[in-house]
């Protein structure tokens, strides 16, 4: 059973995830959506770490490490793409 602090943090992080998902769906321009995806990646890391803390499963932390190491790749790819578009 997770402690009260972990439970509260889970609720808050889930709310943050939902709100960034709203930005992903509504976001008027493509950059807004890319930033939203990046934010969702970062928030999922927090969610997975909290889940690992709540369940006591240490292997969940590896998934968090992978997402933390890889999540920014999409943003970088988009940045390169946007720069290429601007130059042409």
């Amino acid at each position: 059973m997770p402690s009260d602090a972990v439970f509260a943090a889970l609720v808050i992080v889930s709310a943050a995830l939902l709100i960034s998902f709203v930005r992903l769906v509504r976001g008027p321009t493509l950059p807004d959506r890319v930033v939203a995806v990046d934010l969702i990646g970062t928030t999922s890391v927090a969610l997975i770490v909290l889940g690992a803390s709540a369940s006591g499963e240490r292997v969940f932390l590896d998934a968090a490490i992978v997402i933390a190491l890889v999540a920014f790749l999409g943003t970088i790819a988009y940045a390169g793409f946007a720069r290429k578009e601007n130059r042409e």
Binding site: V70, L73, A77
Partner: peptide, 22 residues
Amino acid sequence: NAPGGGFAGGLVVAAAYILHFF
């Protein structure tokens, strides 16, 4: 005998080279 294995490991290594390419 834990989560991971060839597929996940291969994806992470490929991501390393994609980062190098960027």
